[in-house]
Design a protein around this nucleic acid. Sequence first.
DNA 1: ATAGGGTTAG
Length: 803
Amino acid sequence: MSATLALCYSHKPISSENIRRVNSAKTNTNPDLVIKQRLTKSSRINRKQSKIVKFSTRQGNLSEIRSLLSYVNSGSMEDALHLFENMTKCDPFVWNVIIRVLTSNEYFQEAIDFYYRMQFERVRADNFTYPFVIKSCAGSCSLIEGQKVHSKLIKAGFDLDLYICNSLIAMYAKLGCIELSERVFEDLLVRDLVSWNSMISGYVSVGKGWNALVCFQEMLAVGLRADRFSIISSLGACSLDCTLQYGKEIHGQAIRSGFESDVMVQTSVVDMYAKCSRVDYADTFFQTISRKNIVLWNAMIGGYALNRQPLESFVCLKKMQEDDNLTPDMVTAINLLPSCAQIRALFPGKTIHGLTIRKGFLPHLVLETALVDMYGKCGYQKLARKIFSHMSERNLVSWNAMIAAYVQNGCNREALELFQDLWREHFNPDATTITSILPAYAEVALLREGKQIHGYVIKLNLCSNTFISNSIVYMYAKCGDLKTARKIFDGMLFKDIISWNAVIMAYGIHGFGEISIKLFSEMKEEGIKPNASTFVSLLLSCSIAGMIDQGWEYFSSMKKDYGIEPGIEHYGCIVDILGRSANLDLAKRFIDEMPLAPTARIWGSLLSASRHNRNIELAELAAEHILSLEHDNTGCYVLLANMYAEAGRWEDVERIKHLMKNQGLEKTTGYSTVENNSRTFKFVNQDRSHIDTSLIYDVLNIISRKISEDIYIHSLTKFRPLDLIRKRSTAPECHSVRLAICFGLISVSLGNPILVRKNIRICEACHGAAKKISEVTGREIVVGDPKMYHHFRNGRCSCGDYW
DNA sequence: ATAGGGTTAG
């Protein structure tokens, strides 16, 4: 094989005598321009010549041709190639046979190479050669090659051959250039059913379902009758656009035309109903089919997965094996993986993974991508990464799946890193990539980076995408720019429930609960019904803004007035609200009596409530619960240690430190970032790495003197000399947030707020200091942590001193 | 001896 194929690569650029003679008048080699020109006259000459050649050579090696065909028909491509090399090859027919067998075995590049070699050996490509070569150009995804062949066939006078033109229509569509398909189609003087079908399926393959349906109607209007191909393609169009009504009509048409027993038509019907969210129709129709093949079963299994009925898809699998004795294939596996993800259990997914390994299905791009997706959705981003890293081939879809796997599991940094790698590998992110990555930007990115990704969204023209705009609104809010978040929300043409939830949450995390509540009424006035997430946004807004009574009201109203059963997140917000009202016993009782099993997040709420109310006993209890659920919860250890430290219980601090060390846990290094017009600066506690360090510390000293009078006095209730030494090591005077604020004071232009983002929550001392700094400097200071934003203004904070 | 079809990942 390799020896024969090697010959293909030694061809010279096309310059054969014959071609030169035919095209003596032509000098233009730009394929685009050449395609526009037609040489109908030379086409007749060509055909006459090729017929003569055919007649003279066919006599010579008839027996060789017979064996060549028998090799090809029995699938022995290598034998055919071997024989071919020893034949006289002046007849295009033998070349056509070879090019066809290469094309049908997906040796696309080799088929194209043989086409060039044919020209080099001065054998003229005929009307049969081009359809194969065109198909190979489509198969090898080479638009440039396709256009070269196209311009060549125009020069050779084949541009009115219907077979060739129909192939071109399909090729351009497969290469994503539907406009070029349209041009070929429109230039046709005569169109047959195949031309129309190619155009319809072309529209489907580029995702333009509506155009496909219009084309289908036009075809019927000119008096052509739909065949099974027209039916299958237009059903595909209905699946794309979820146009159930048209789908039903075409289904009816298929029955009237007698195609209802065609298994491919049946499969398309099942798929269409499933994609139009009517898996019940799909199933009813599916039940009536007596002879089902694996593809049809797969469509039904996939339909259940698509409509989030995972258990039904497994039932369907079982029936397929029992009723029809069919063995699951690769597509079965791919279709079942989303069902595994939906039940969020690792075992079924792993079983299928193992099965595909044993069957030798791997490596396979689509299957591996489905596995990445499944492991990601089941919460095993490390297993997803393992698959992803071992993939020999990746496309944008695989990258999107891996990015989503990280984001869904809270690995935002990893997701952003992967997003950078994606650029480096020269992939262009699409709407899915952006949708997946935006939440990661919201969680950990700086405003500057957020603005960059927003710029990219504008460049990609995705601003009208409601889903993406929703994420952008939330991202701006989470990056600290509430104004821009609101501006984008106000500018959205189509606001859905998620848009409203996002903007309510935006004001919530910035501590403006009253505005959240106002937005909630506006939303209801617009006729939009709140959902469970709306109440998460609202309850969180109430808890952050300290609106205890409203919080309770919404909590009882969600079930009473809207029939929404509170979920664990709603309960969490209520624990926060109770903690805020200093009613710790009630909070504890609420947890004990709630109908859902408390999660670490619930106990975490009680823990921070205990901290605020300096109730060490309850904090210990909460911490015990948290650590029984998440033994590696660093934040929990640190918070407890800080409480012990504040109480002067240094032995307990040491005990906690020891526990952490034993588990290999390290305290998260706190840092603060601040952005000015041109740059971003990151500070850690006692940071001295900044180029303007001495200036920053000078500012800090001046500020500290101005505000120092009552910062520490209340926190040193049980003073001991040892305490002073220990305290000094974490001296809040030099905490990162203050360094960031001081740098902001000298580098952020007046009138703009100083925006600081932290990876951990602000400490009490720094919170007090920030309030005072805002007072003495008259600047607005905004400090965000993973949960919320503090707006410091005129000595007050939007959080009302509870966080 | 030639072109046009179904099921799959986000």
